[in-house]
Nucleic acid binder design. Structure first.
Ligand code: NAD
Ligand code: NAD
Lengths: 244, 244
DNA sequence: CGGAGTTTGTGACTGCGAGAACAAACTCGC
DNA sequence: GCGAGTTTGTTCTCGCAGTCACAAACTCCG
């Protein structure tokens, strides 16, 4: 996009664009990567933007624009090489090597996460499970021993962990986040329904099921209201030019 | 949907604005609601937009703008009454009464969801758990008996369910979604890493942990690249007087 | 070798959302 | 009762993101 080389020096390499990928695009790259993986599993070697867009559930123009932020990895008149593009996206995201991850709070949700195989297959490796409850400690979950919360800093340092998952009750979430940041973690995935405050430089993403359900409920209410209104309109006879 | 023309009458409420709340606002209303609930639990009867915004982790101007879409429920010079505003938001979202919900796929994640108390306390009631595996059926999870997937339509009709949760493997997700839609469900919360296609009028929201982690990984990579670059710059000479 | 057909990459346009700033409206003290 | 102080509701502006449309670049076939 607009080779604005007016940037300070920095003549890094053949493709300069590596700067400033829009956040909305970053959020879609993993979706494209998954679609590509799925194509590769079906032994499809190349695909058009149209095909990939369909597989990813987006508009093809948006897909092409997104990919153009990474560089020109397609061939006009042909399409994209599945393996090549996969690698380029993985490299851009930074999942060409595995990221060590720790999970704090091995309750209902934490155990499900620990047992989830989808993480390891997508560039993440759970290196430790931590919990504050004495009765949890030493128990084996998903082949890992649950360790005391106090070991956090030690583990983070030893394993060079930069990503942490919080699945403790909301009341404990801020404390855990503080401890994580103190131990050197700089990216947090938070499942607790709490607003975390962290210093600049630390990224937090939250996953909140209640919110998702409430958003669905809102739209559901509106749908109900709409059909009720439509019925009322029919009742009323004319009113509103919707009359047949 | 249907771009409605200037709706006439609609004398239901004192304020007419009930139309067209921006999607971004809808996504924040549940956050405000939770912050208000938290304030109410601490016996705080009223609050300013500034306080509420802090509790919800947003900008106060944005909060006021969001709330203004619902109507004028605050008092200038005073602030918002916590209970009153809570009720108004809950009413707008449509969670003044409980929504029946079913969960399909009672594996690792499905069991965690079934055991999760946070749903029931926020306007949702799990009325049935369904799974296709014979060995799951009849088992009790979270006080509910797991029922065969074939009972889906019957349950949806009997309990008037309009919201369904999918926590089956990705390969089965589309089939489950189709069955849900066929049974009359019109809102789906999907945990499977798959792109669902549904007819118009059906809402789908997805929760994808791998994507969240990959987004974090992207930013983490950039942070690493940045500090490496900074180090290189220091090597180069001036810039940042960290000259050791 | 050249033209037809295909598909990418990108510029232009549009609409939404975030944030700052301010007028209107309310309370409180005197 | 009135002015000072406070806080909401709204207006304005700016930037980001989505979509369209098309030129550039490639392949294939005659
Ligand atoms: N279970 C779900 O499906 C689900 C869904 C959405 C959100 N959540 C959220 O995820 C979080 C965990 O839910 P859950 O159902 O697993 O709860 P849980 O009570 O089953 O597990 C919480 C675990 O965290 C541990 N813990 C508590 N305080 C701690 C601390 N300070 N340090 C370390 N460990 C601590 C507890 O010992 C316990 O094992 C909650 O915030 C919940 O709201 C859960
Ligand atoms: N476990 C996690 O923490 C986690 C995290 C993120 C995403 N997910 C996703 O959630 C989904 C479920 O994960 P899980 O770990 O619970 O898997 P799981 O294998 O433990 O459970 C899946 C359940 O679905 C049932 N099932 C399979 N096909 C079905 C069908 N057609 N109809 C009805 N039921 C069917 C199975 O019998 C099983 O009980 C997966 O798509 C996974 O990628 C899980």
């Amino acid at each position: 996009m607009t080779a604005r080389s007016t940037n300070t020096g920095e003549g890094s390499g053949a493709h300069d664009p590596h700067r400033d990928i829009p956040e909305a695009t970053v959020a879609r790259l993993p979706v494209y990567l998954r679609a590509l993986t799925s194509l590769a599993e079906r032994n499809i070697a190349s695909c058009s933007s149209e095909e990939l867009a369909t597989a990813a559930g987006v508009n093809s123009a948006k897909l092409r624009k997104d990919l153009s932020y990474l560089g020109s990895y397609g061939t006009r008149g042909v399409g994209y090489d599945v393996d090549y593009l996969s690698y380029q996206i993985a490299r851009e995201i930074g999942v060409t090597h595995d990221w060590p991850v720790i999970i704090v709070g091995i309750g209902n949700l934490g155990q499900a996460l620990a047992n989830f195989s989808g993480f390891s297959s997508r560039g993440f490796r759970t290196v430790a499970l931590l919990d504050a409850a004495p009765q949890m400690q030493g128990q084996a979950v998903a082949g890992l021993e649950v360790r005391p919360f106090a070991d956090l800093a030690e583990i983070v340092a030893a394993e060079q962990v930069s990503i942490g998952v919080i699945s403790v009750p909301a009341t404990a979430a801020q404390d855990v986040a503080d401890a994580m940041v103190g131990a050197g973690i700089s990216s947090i995935l938070n499942f607790a329904p709490a607003v975390l405050s962290v210093p600049p430089g630390v990224d937090v993403r939250k996953v909140d099921l209640s919110i998702e359900l409430q958003i669905l409920a809102y739209h559901e209410s509106r749908k109900a209201a709409e059909s009720a209104e439509a019925a009322a309109t029919v009742d009323n006879g004319s009113e509103e030019g919707i009359t047949a």
